[in-house]
C-alpha cells in the first residue's frame, strides 16, 4: 500500500469504473480492491451495470436515422425558417390541408435525399455547408416530379397534374401571381419538349409553379419556380444527380428555379441553361 497517497474514496471507485483515473491512481485503487472484496463486489456490480446500459442503448447509435432526423431535413425545415420558434409560427400560417400536402412533398422528396445530396455523407455535408436554398429547390422539384411526372412506364395516358392542393390549372397569370413573379412559360420546343401542363404546388417554403414538359419519347421534365426567402439573391446553377433523375437548380434575382428529368444530364443541362438565359434576358 502506498500510504502517502490520499485515501481511497467512493469517487475514486466511480472514476475507476468509468476509466477516468490516471495510471498511478488506478494502480492504487486496484491494490485497494484486492484487499477489500466487499468494495470489489460493489465495483464489479457497477461495471456490470454500465456494460448492460451500453449493451441496451448503444445499438441506437447504428439504427438508421428516421428521415426527420437527418440534417438535410432539419436544415430545410428548421434553420432555413430561422429559429425553432419561427418554424412553429410558420406552421400556423398554413391550413392543415396544405400542411399535410407539404409533408407529403417532403416525404417524397426525402425518399431520394441520400441520392440527391449525392455521394454519401461528405456530399451531403458539403451541400448543406453551402446551403442557400438550392438543395431545397432540388428536393421540391423531385417531389413535384414524383407526383406529377413519374407514373411508371405507362406513358400511353397523358399525365394530368392532380393534387389536393392544386388550383384549377391552366391559368398562368394566377399561378405567377401566387409565385410572386410574372414570367412567360419557357418554350422548350427547340429542345424537343412540349409543354403539357402548368400548375402550382405547395412546398414548405411557399407556393411554387410546376411546369410539366414531355418529349416525343415520353420523357417528362418538370420546371419548378418559386420565390426565395432571401430577396434578390442569385446563386449559380448546381447539378444534383440522383439514382434516377438529374436536376439543375439556380437562383436569379430572388427567384429559384429547378429543372428535373430522367433524361440525359447533358441534355438537361443545355435546357436549364436555355431557360436561365431566356429568363435573364427579360
Amino acid at each position: 500500500m502506498t500510504h502517502s497517497m490520499p485515501p481511497i474514496t467512493d469517487d475514486d471507485l466511480h472514476a475507476y469504473v468509468d476509466g477516468k483515473l490516471d495510471d498511478a491512481r488506478r494502480a492504487v485503487v486496484e491494490d485497494y480492491l484486492i484487499n477489500n472484496p466487499g468494495q470489489r463486489r460493489r465495483v464489479d456490480a457497477w461495471i456490470a451495470q454500465t456494460n448492460a446500459l451500453r449493451a441496451t442503448f448503444d445499438p441506437v447509435m447504428t439504427e438508421p436515422l428516421p428521415p426527420e432526423l437527418t440534417m438535410a431535413h432539419i436544415a430545410l425545415n428548421g434553420s432555413m425558417d430561422g429559429t425553432g420558434q419561427r418554424q412553429q409560427r410558420a406552421r400556423s400560417w398554413f391550413g392543415p390541408q396544405i400542411r399535410a400536402a407539404a409533408g407529403f412533398l417532403i416525404a417524397l422528396g426525402l425518399g431520394g435525399a441520400a441520392g440527391w445530396f449525392g455521394h454519401g455523407q461528405t456530399g451531403a455535408d458539403q451541400s448543406l455547408a453551402r446551403d442557400t436554398g438550392i438543395p431545397s429547390l432540388a428536393l421540391e422539384s423531385k417531389a413535384a416530379y414524383q407526383i406529377f411526372a413519374d407514373r411508371g412506364h405507362d406513358r400511353s395516358h397523358p399525365t394530368k397534374m392532380t393534387h389536393p392542393t392544386a388550383q384549377p390549372s391552366g391559368d398562368p397569370a394566377a399561378i405567377w401571381h401566387r409565385v410572386g413573379r410574372k414570367f412567360r412559360l419557357p418554350d422548350l420546343t427547340a429542345a424537343g419538349f412540349q409543354r403539357i401542363e402548368v400548375d402550382w404546388v405547395a412546398t414548405i417554403h411557399g407556393p411554387a409553379a410546376a411546369v410539366l414538359y414531355r418529349d416525343q419519347s415520353g420523357d417528362n421534365l418538370i420546371l419548378l419556380v418559386r420565390k426565395m426567402e432571401i430577396p434578390a439573391s442569385t446563386i449559380r446553377m448546381v447539378e444534383h444527380r440522383g439514382r434516377d433523375h438529374t436536376s439543375f437548380a439556380w437562383i436569379h434575382g430572388g427567384i429559384g428555379y429547378a429543372v428535373i428529368a430522367d433524361t440525359l444530364p447533358q441534355r438537361l443541362h443545355r435546357i436549364a441553361n436555355q431557360i436561365r438565359d431566356d429568363e435573364n434576358a427579360i
Partner: peptide, 18 residues
C-alpha cells in the same frame, strides 16, 4: 453558420441514444 452542420450531424446518433 452551416459549416457547423456536419459537426452537429455527427452527434445526432449519440443524442438519440441518450
Amino acid at each position: 453558420m452551416r459549416t457547423m452542420n456536419p459537426a452537429i450531424e455527427a452527434v445526432i446518433p449519440a443524442l438519440r441514444r441518450y
